[in-house]
Nucleic acid binder design. Structure first.
Lengths: 212, 212
DNA sequence: CCAACATACGGACCGTCAGTCCGTTTAGCA
DNA sequence: TGCTAAACGGACTGACGGTCCGTATGTTGG
């Protein structure tokens, strides 16, 4: 009883829908103005097909986001410096943040859609927990393996809330899509200015990190 | 043709609605599960009344938030140290962040409702721009008056994106309602732990702030 | 090449919800 | 007490996310 490969028209439609949704999102001001009917119509596909493929609105946005994000993720997980895992921690943290910010700058609307469309908070999304885990682990390295028995009492598998985890959250919060959008839009900042400010900010956080 | 004072039943209803909405929000898991019909029913008031008073969903949430936030705002604008304007900058920044976080810890659901219900981004909301302005100005003082004749450079009303403004955004992002909720909920942190982590994080940012 | 089956398709349909409209009620005033 | 402007309430509308099911089509075994 082997699982058959998916039908040809199915995969074709999947691509069509993804492309249509992408175009719609990047063209529209707010992601909320794009309805599922719009996507279906733009893709020349029935609504049923849309929901069958992606489950719900969230699923569509997630699928699109993952497709666009895949190469970045590869680079972080297996690539060379400065994003890859063999980079020196401090440099890598800065590179990770800059890469994430750059992606959001280039895909503002999609990123906003992802963060605001979630039925729950964006913090439950697997892509967030992945970024957070990666960043936290790198911060842990940066801080040095020495100070690592303190956070948890020897027998406490549940750390209350370790400093690296919080720092990772706080740094990621600084590149949230709606903030980025606001800086670019209402505050009229250039992408380069935002990147420069983030880099300076992150450097300040890191430089103070080791020394209490 | 003086504007008459509002009718007695109108103000009574306003309070009733606000109280009902507050109760509903704090009881419900996600603010999105509270419909306007729910509020109207709980307040024992017609839907028309609700919308006449508050304009739309956003208006209701904003009104409620402002009512709950008012005393804090007073304390920041005119109160004594550590929140008031006469506090030493470093101490005041820490106090502001802690006060804001404490408020969000105590009013999780309302705060989340405020941030996620906005038709636009939360960054356009006046309460955000107020917090951001206050924080930025205090950071400016902290950094020293030296580097500061530029803001109102006679001919440059548009600064590109100054470091204090960005830092203020980044620090405020660390206390966003959904992050706070996540830390408390999914990560099981205690309110005190979150406050401690935020204080430590902010201190790191500030201590590095002066020295490039 | 054909038949039969699994899979996918489409769009009518449903429930919910924000927001509107308008006929009715009532507070406030002279 | 009677008049009027203000407020009230709830039926109604339009839009949207999501479901259902009869129909069409790619795929596979004979």
């Amino acid at each position: 009883m082997p699982d058959r490969r998916p039908r040809a028209d199915a995969v074709r439609n999947r691509e069509t829908v993804l492309a249509a949704a992408d175009a719609l999102f990047t063209d529209s001001e707010s992601a909320r103005t794009v309805s599922m009917d719009d996507v279906a119509a733009a893709a020349g596909v029935g609504k049923g097909t849309l929901f069958r493929r992606f489950g719900d609105r969230d699923g569509l946005v997630r699928a699109l986001f993952e497709a666009r994000t895949d190469s970045l993720r590869q680079a972080v997980e297996h690539g060379p410096a400065p994003l890859g895992p063999r980079t020196a921690p401090r440099r890598r943290v800065l590179a990770l943040l800059d890469a994430l910010l750059t992606f959001k700058l280039a895909n503002r609307h999609l990123s906003r859609a992802l963060e605001e469309t979630g039925s729950g908070s964006p913090y439950e999304a697997t892509h967030y927990t992945w970024w957070h885990g990666t960043l936290r682990d790198t911060l842990l390295l940066l801080r040095g393996p020495a100070s690592r028995e303190d956070t948890g009492a020897p027998e406490a598998p549940e750390q209350p809330l370790d400093a690296c985890a919080f720092t990772a959250h706080a740094l990621l919060a600084a590149v949230r899509a709606d903030l980025v959008e606001h800086l670019l839009g209402a505050e009229g900042a250039s992408p380069e200015a935002v990147r420069a400010q983030l880099a300076a900010y992150a450097a300040r956080v890191l430089d103070a990190d080791g020394a209490p």
